[in-house]
Structure formats: C-alpha cells, structure tokens
Computed example of a mutant assay.
Amino acid sequence: MADESQRPIVVKKIKKGGHGHHGGAWKIAYADFVTAMMAFFLLMWLLGSTSSGILAGISDYFRTPLKTALQGGEGTGASTSVIKGGGTDLTKSTGVVAKGSPREQTEKVRSRGEQEKKMRQLEQRIKQQLDMTLSKNEALKALENQIRMEMTPDGLRIMIIDEQNRPMFQSGGFVPLDHTRLILQQIGRELNGIDNHISISGHTDANRFSGGGAGYTNWELSADRANAARREMVAGGMADEKVLRVVGLGAADPINKQNVFSSENRRIAIVILTKEAEERIRTDGVSDQTEQVPAAPVKEGQ
C-alpha cells in the first residue's frame, strides 16, 4: 500500500471574471462639460445684468476697435469704481455715460411723441388759416393745390410749388409775386407762435439758367429765392432769429424725379424743425454717442 503522505498537493485557483480598468478619461470630459456650462451661465448672467448702453458700447468697440486705441486710456474712459466699468450708476461704461441708456431712450421716445403731436396740431392750424386767407380772394383760390404739407423725419414741411401757368417768382428772378408774398407772410405769422426753429430751402428745375451775370446759375437763383422767402416771412411778423438755415439746393432734389425739368420742381420748402433736427443742423450732423464723465482723482495706494 502506497504512502499517502508522499502524494503531491494540487491547489486550484479559480479566477473570477470582472470589468477592465477604464482609467480617468471620463472625469476629464465631465470636468470640461461642467466648466463650459458654468461659463455659459456666467455669460448669460452678465448679459442680463448689463445695461443696454454698455452693451451698445461693447458692440461699438468690436466694430471699431481702432477708435478706442487712438483715444487711449483703459477702454473708452476712466472708471471711479474698483471694478473697471462698474460703479453705482449702471449706465456708466468705464467712466462714460451712454446716451443710449434705457431712461434716455424712453425720454427721447416720449419727446418725439409730444413733438409729433404738436406738429400735427400746427399743421391743422396752418391749413385752416391758409384756407381762410385763400377763400377771401378768388384769385388766390387757384393756389390751393400749390401748397403742400407733409410730415418728415426733420419736422413739418410746407412747400409752395410752381405750376406751369402760375409761377411763384418773377421769371428768371427771385422777387416773389404778390400772391407768393401774401402766402409767405401768412405762414410767417403762424410760425411766430411756436418755439421751433425753421429751415428754408429753395429749389429749381434742371433747365440751365440763362439770365443774370456770368457765373449766376440755378444754385445762386435757388439761394436768392430762399432768402427772399425769409424776408417775406419776417415782414409778416416772424422773428428773424427763428430761421436756423437758409439754403439753395438748385435742381439737386427734384420732387418729380421722372421729369427733372417739370415746373413742380421749382419750389420753396419751409421745414418746422424738431429738436433733434435742430441739434443736427447746429452740429453739422456730428453728434457724440457718449458723454464723457471726468474721472475722479486716484488716491495713492489704490
């Protein structure tokens, strides 16, 4: 019988199956996702808490970055806040008060509405007065179609227009005829009761001017007619300082663009200006988008 103590001992190890090791790549991807979401929500919060004036300034910067570079300084101004562009006034954009702030925009809309209402009332009043003036004279009734009124972005425009057989001025000259003088003086009396300033422009047709001295063209003729209209309106009682601009445009702005030689292109245009149009004329069309605010002195240690 064999010795059992000499038999070899066999140990069997059973290796259980399991999932392989994936490493930490998923953690990196998840961290990137969370960071992107935080940045997105931070951007949304900043856009929601920033005034429209500052947003407009940021938009202007990206459209014309050279402007800021040429002006110098930090951004477009100097801020008195520790956080650049911050401060107690949310309409400030790095030391600059934006004219496009919500409050100012609301005031502008309200002002435009009030001005338009006044212009409409003035239009009705002038029409009534002119109708009364024309009705008193049978010869003047035929001029009714030669007086036109319309609202424009610059204000209420009153036009006195030539017709083929009813000119407003002497042929080839700038002296107004009697019916033209009567109408201009009546308009002058009505306009003297309003606060707005006016602009007067003279227009001709495209026919080459053959009268007058050397170098006298439609440009000079239209300017002389506009100035003659101004004199008649002042003679009617209008204060001379109400006139903000008198210009001659020659044949450059015809009513009848299909026929630049038409008689209706010869006209006098009187515009009762809105406040915005007055400001634009006074500044030659240049208006600052922002109002500079002087920066507070910086103390040592700040």
Rank of each mutant, 00 (worst) to 15 (best):
R208A: 14
V82R: 12
D253M: 11
I158P: 04
T64Q: 15
F41N: 08
A39L: 15
I147F: 11
S59H: 06
S59Y: 13
Q128R: 13
N265W: 06
S262W: 03
T152H: 05
V234A: 04
P176Y: 00
L90K: 14
V97C: 06
I126V: 15
T106Y: 03
Y61P: 01
Q292V: 10
E241Q: 08
L130N: 05
Q129M: 03
I187Y: 02
I272G: 06
Q164S: 08
I14M: 08
E123Q: 09
A239E: 12
P254K: 10
A31P: 00
M233N: 03
N265R: 02
R103T: 12
L156Q: 06
V293F: 12
G172V: 10
G155D: 03
A31D: 12
I126S: 03
D205S: 14
Q258D: 12
A142G: 04
G86R: 08
E241Y: 13
I9G: 02
K275L: 09
I187H: 07
Q115F: 06
S199E: 10
K299S: 13
H22M: 14
M38N: 11
S210I: 14
I160W: 05
Q146M: 10
M233R: 04
Q129G: 00
S287I: 15
E116M: 11
N165Q: 13
A69G: 08
H179F: 01
P8W: 01
K84Y: 13
R230P: 02
A214N: 13
G193W: 11
R125D: 14
R110C: 04
G212P: 04
V82M: 03
F169E: 05
G87F: 08
G236Y: 04
F41Q: 07
E163R: 05
A277G: 07
I58D: 09
R266G: 04
E264G: 00
T283G: 03
M44A: 12
L55S: 12
R181P: 01
K299V: 03
R231F: 08
Q164G: 02
W45G: 11
K299P: 01
G85N: 09
N256Q: 06
S93M: 10
R110D: 13
A229F: 02
M119D: 12
E4Q: 11
L182F: 01
E116P: 00
D131Y: 03
P254G: 03
M119Q: 14
E163A: 09
P297S: 06
G23Y: 13
I183L: 15
V247H: 02
M149V: 00
G23P: 06
L221A: 02
Y216H: 14
G57R: 02
N265A: 06
M1C: 12
N259A: 09
G24K: 06
A25M: 12
A139F: 06
T80R: 07
G86I: 14
K13R: 09
I83N: 09
T133R: 09
A235T: 05
P294F: 07
G172A: 07
K92M: 14
G17W: 07
V260C: 00
V234E: 15
E279C: 05
P167H: 05
M168R: 12
A206R: 02
T76R: 05
G17Q: 09
L249Y: 04
R189I: 07
R282I: 14
V97T: 14
G53V: 05
V293I: 15
